[in-house]
Design a protein around this nucleic acid. Structure first.
Lengths: 243, 243
DNA sequence: TGTATAAGGTTGTATATACAGTATAGTCGA
DNA sequence: TCGACTATACTGTATATACAACCTTATACA
């Protein structure tokens, strides 16, 4: 069952594990290529590849003549897309409620394994929730969660706390990917959201990463008549900062 | 001038240029490592690095024992950045064209005055453009422009340059507001985009500010089957930087 | 005709070696 | 004491070589 992983991948995993566990904090120097050569018994080119890829992936930074260092990682706050729908509805002075339609451990499949970028993932957590504003369905949440990132995920009562809040407390989020599309609802979606088949919906597909692992994949479906997505950004000299 | 670029980077640029120009379309086989060795006079490891990195960056896909191929670039539009649709299409190796359906000065009205946050605004520029990818309509651009910010706006030939490019060169953008919704197309939109009435569309409504004034208000309509909106963000110690 | 085998091309990984460029610490000398 | 020089460590790139795994095609055989 040992996956016969390539050597450079083992070195990468070793370094990532140290970062994930907190043993190596940001700014700390990681072993040089020559030190990895000695400790792993590999060639310098193999050590170089491991460090170079981790640098391209944003986990390390390298300075010629000096060394390789753990990069400053997450400022976990204020990701505009990670707003909590319960808070959002409360902010409008309305009542938020949710119905958990499904909450269980499922087996993986090739499509999911690819989305999670992990073929060895055998089981996943799945969640299907209808969120209501003053009793009217406004969002359908179809979520898969990586057990490696949040082992105790299913133990929570999701009518009292939202999955997003649980995940944020379990692991820092360092990367987000969003895809937004317009869709017509499936029959099941029509039933769960109590809408007709001709009402267009917004589909928001989101993947979030935590220290190099895909933590969760979620599809949010909003009936167009009841919800729009909104964002406001201010540009700075450095880049785009969400508000 | 000569940047003394590394060899692997030159190979990468060569391949990317062929993809961007459209010379190599999606699915086409790219030269094998050994062919690159011959044509560039480099070692196989250098060719391997170029192809491997382009694969990691999503431009190529490789199949052991078969070859390396240009990957299908998804039709995705970046939500957070002000990107030029012409560049975006060119990056996928496709041909961009546009038809200017309307381009004139109009009188303001209360609704527009409110959107522009300026009641004294008597006149505005209006633009209606259909953007096409390989001759197929993919975006309907319905734009209003503040003459105070870009007085000579109407003088440009918008089949040669995009409104976004003109506005960016006229004034810095310091704030953006987006609203995304799913809509069914109006009769006119059906006609301009050459779609049926049952095809849901993404409506992206954007206001941009320049030095405290609303510079432009634009509604972009994308047929769902031909376009999706996409954004990917990585958090850093500084904030959220769009990629 | 159908099947097994062989050959050749392709990617994937690993090593040993070499040289260039950069930063740092220490030494030597004025 | 200060500056120039040197040794050393580290990263960055490039090459030649080797072997494994995989796929396709052609060939030989039953």
């Amino acid at each position: 069952m040992t996956d016969a992983q390539p050597l450079y991948a083992r070195v990468k995993d070793h370094i990532l594990a140290n970062i994930r566990s907190g043993a190596w904090e940001a700014g700390r120097r990681v072993p040089s290529e020559n030190e990895l050569v000695e400790s792993f018994g590999i060639s310098r080119m193999t050590a170089n590849r491991a460090l170079r890829e981790l640098t391209a992936e944003g986990f390390l930074s390298r300075v010629p003549g000096v060394g390789t260092f753990v990069r400053e990682q997450p400022a976990l706050s204020s990701l505009m897309e990670l707003r909590n729908i319960a808070e959002e509805i409360a902010q409008r002075g309305h009542r938020h409620s949710s119905r958990v339609m499904s909450k269980r451990e499922i087996e993986s499949n090739p499509a999911l394994a690819e989305e999670f970028e992990d073929r060895s993932l055998k089981h996943l957590f799945h969640l299907l929730i209808v969120h209501e504003e003053n009793g009217v369905p406004v969002q359908l949440e179809d979520r898969y969660v990586n057990p490696l990132v949040a082992p105790g995920f299913l133990d929570h009562d999701f009518t009292r706390t939202t999955p997003t809040a649980v995940l944020l407390s379990a692991a820092p989020v360092d990367e987000l990917e969003h895809t937004v599309e317009a869709v017509l609802p499936s029959l099941e979606q029509q039933r769960l959201l109590a809408i007709g088949g001709l009402e267009p919906c917004l589909g928001l597909h989101r993947r979030s990463w935590s220290l190099g692992r895909v933590a969760t994949v979620v599809t949010l479906t909003y009936p167009a008549s009841r919800y729009a997505l909104y964002s406001r950004h201010r540009t700075t000299a450095r880049g785009t900062v969400s508000q």
